[in-house]
Nucleic acid binder design. Structure first.
Lengths: 110, 110
DNA sequence: TTATTATATTGCAATATTACGATTAATAAA
DNA sequence: TTTATTAATCGTAATATTGCAATATAATAA
């Protein structure tokens, strides 16, 4: 089918899965890391940096914008992208609380 | 194309993306949360718990096993699944270090 | 106005994912 | 041995994702 049955799961489960899915492509990880590395807005050079075609980068940026982890502001003919710090922190907390559910669990398999 | 160009990215980027991709489905999040919640091995009732067909659950379990976050041991006619604690901790660290690259970044967009 | 530049959108081909019915394999129980 | 029981695998349909060429859009420069 190819269609995820989201109605079977909680909002929290769908939410974390949706964000993880967007993080589930190396180009999008590379874009985020580049934005962090330069520690400022970037206007334009992502295509050269990542090495995929312009429409492909544009599509990845769109998905990152969809979950709000980056934001883009029009600056003349170009668009400046940067990390949305507030959303980044939210996602950090979301993943940390998911992954730390398991801290006091010492069970190994039967 | 549908084919990710992994050769354009670093091993670290591909690694985190691969794990995030597996976490990018609510059924797999639900499976992991159920395994954590019961805090022991589970032999069989995942199909009832999650509410998807048995072959579908089996396929999701396979993907979780692929990245090593869970392990399965044959126990008679059934299979007991549990969290692989060591791998879980590795993934927790991996995500934390990725997400914390951004801590001292106070930039907002232009 | 007419380029030029930068990015988004459209359309499409190739491949991947999701889901499930049918079947298979392996063990346990009768 | 025959009959459950449990889970994996196979096959397939529906849908999603990835990537890019071509085109469109929007702002600036000449």
């Amino acid at each position: 089918m190819g269609l995820t049955k989201t109605e079977k799961f909680t909002d929290a489960q769908n939410n974390i899965a949706q964000i993880a899915k967007v993080l589930g492509h190396p180009a999008r990880i590379a874009i985020l890391q580049h934005l962090i590395k330069i520690n400022s807005c970037i206007c334009g050079d992502l295509v050269d940096e990542i090495g995929l075609a312009q429409p492909t980068i544009s599509q990845h940026l769109k998905e990152l914008k969809n979950i709000g982890i980056i934001q883009g502001n029009i600056e003349g003919t170009s668009v400046c992208y940067c990390i949305n710090q507030e959303k980044w922190e939210y996602i950090t907390t979301l993943f940390a609380s998911f992954l730390n559910q398991n801290t006091n669990n010492t069970t190994s398999c039967c």
